[in-house]
Each structure stands twice: as C-alpha cells, then as structure tokens.
Computed example of a mutant assay.
Amino acid sequence: MKEQWWNFGQAANYVQANYPCESGVAANRFLADKIADGSLVTRYENGLIIQPEEWVRLGDIDLTVEGTHISHGAVEYQRASVEKLCNPSNPQARGGRPSKDWPDFLIEVVAMANTPDGLPDRQADLERTMLAWGEENMSDPPKETAVRDMVSRIYKRIKR
C-alpha cells in the first residue's frame, strides 16, 4: 500500500477530532510539539523528508525549517505517524481517554432513540444491540463491560 500523506489542514482536523483538543489552536500546538520532539514525520511537497533537527521553534505554535520560509503549515504529514500519536497502542499515553469510537456509538444510540420505537425498555437489550453494532461498525469495538458501563450511564440519565 502506498504511503499516505496529509496536508496541514487534514492533519490538524484529524488531531482535533481524535485527540483531546478543544480547538484548532490546540491541535496546531499539538502538531508543533510533536514535530519539535521528532514524533511526527514531515516532508516537503517534493517528497523529501524533513529531519527533526531541521525544524526551528519560533513561538508557542510556530515552527519553520531552518534557513527557509517554510512553516509547519506548508509541509505534508505522514498519515500513519499522525494516527499513531492520536491512537496509541497504550491508551494511558494520552491521559486514559478511551480509544474507542464513542461518538459514533452514541450517535447510533441517539438515532435509535429517535425512532418511533425508541430505546428498548430493558438495558440488557440495548447492550446486546450495541455490542453487535460495534462489532459491525467499529474498527476497535468495545468489550461487553465497556458497553455495559456506557449504556448504564445512558439509562441512569434517562430515568432521572
């Protein structure tokens, strides 16, 4: 498979959606920090890899390639290195945030709740449904305990 590269906007959007960044500025800072520490692989538009030591920090969120006017917003980011930083194999590496795709999971629950039949009366029925949905629709489906915990929180909130 051919290696994929993202422009700055694509990398920043991915970071903002998949890492605990509340804003575009926070995603920009994250990318700048990871370029500076050598965690991200970057390249010029012509395909030449930019070595980590070539980057010079100009400020909190600004980097440039030494001796040029090229900023980190004008280079390409190796997609795999961005994804790896946002989805580490050790979830504790990013503050214990779950690596599961909970937003899509919750969107599915809301969509189900918005049908004429609504959510099942029994929590166990929704757990089974969502376990099956996760297996079918999530690249890293949650285990039964995680689904039970999430569905339990939903039913507790509904019964208030």
Results as ranks from 00 to 15, higher is better:
Glu135Arg: 14
Pro142Gly: 05
Gln4Asp: 05
Val41Ile: 09
Gly73Trp: 06
Arg94Val: 10
Ser39Cys: 06
Arg157Leu: 12
Val110Cys: 11
Leu48Glu: 15
His69Asn: 15
Gly24Ala: 12
Thr145Ser: 14
Lys159Gln: 15
Leu63Thr: 09
Arg160Met: 04
Lys100Leu: 09
Phe105Val: 10
Arg122Pro: 08
Glu3Asp: 05
Leu126Ile: 10
Ser81Val: 13
Trp133Gln: 07
Gln92Val: 11
Gly96Ala: 01
Tyr44Lys: 09
Ile154Trp: 11
Gly73Phe: 05
Trp102Thr: 03
Val25Gly: 02
Val75Lys: 01
Gln4Asn: 07
Phe105Gly: 03
Gly73Tyr: 07
Ala12Leu: 08
Asp37Met: 01
Asn46Glu: 03
Trp102Glu: 02
Gly38Ala: 02
Glu54His: 04
Ile107Tyr: 08
Gln51Glu: 09
Met150Ser: 06
Asp60Lys: 10
Pro88Trp: 03
Gly47Ile: 10
Gln10Asp: 06
Arg148Val: 03
Asp37Phe: 09
Leu40Pro: 05
Gln123Glu: 15
Asn90Arg: 07
Lys156Leu: 04
Ile49Trp: 03
Val15Tyr: 04
Gly95Glu: 11
Glu76Gly: 01
Trp102Val: 07
Val65Ser: 02
Thr145Asn: 14
Pro120Gly: 09
Asp121Met: 14
Val147Lys: 04
Asp121Asn: 13
Asp104Tyr: 11
Val109Asn: 02
Gln78Arg: 10
Gly59Asp: 12
Gln123Asn: 05
Ser81Asp: 08
Trp133Thr: 08
Ser23Gln: 02
Lys2Gln: 13
Ser99Ile: 00
Phe30Ile: 07
Val82Leu: 03
Ile50Arg: 06
Ile158Arg: 12
Asp125Lys: 12
Leu131Arg: 12
Gln51Ile: 06
Ala132His: 14
Lys156Cys: 00
Thr68Tyr: 04
Arg153Leu: 09
Pro116Val: 02
Glu144Ala: 15
Thr145Gly: 11
Glu135Ala: 11
Leu126Ala: 08
Asp117Val: 03
Cys86Gln: 02
Phe30Tyr: 13
Phe8Lys: 06
Ser71Lys: 10
Asn90Pro: 05
Tyr77Ala: 00
Val25Gln: 01
Lys34Glu: 15
Val25Ser: 05
Thr64Asp: 12
Glu66Pro: 04
Ile154Ala: 04
Lys143Ala: 15
Leu85Pro: 04
Ala17Arg: 06
Val25Pro: 00
Ile107Leu: 04
Val147Gln: 04
Asn7Leu: 03
Leu40Val: 02
Asp62Trp: 13
Arg122Cys: 13
Thr145Asp: 14
Pro141Trp: 11
Asn13Lys: 10
Arg122Trp: 12
Ala27Gln: 04
Trp6Ser: 02
Trp55Cys: 11
Trp133Pro: 10
Asp33Gln: 10
Thr42Cys: 15
Val65Gly: 03
Val25Asp: 06
Ala17Trp: 00
Leu58Met: 14
Ser71Cys: 05
Ile35Glu: 09
Ala132Asp: 14
Ala17Lys: 07
Leu31Phe: 09
Gly38Arg: 00
Ile49Thr: 11
Ile107Asn: 00
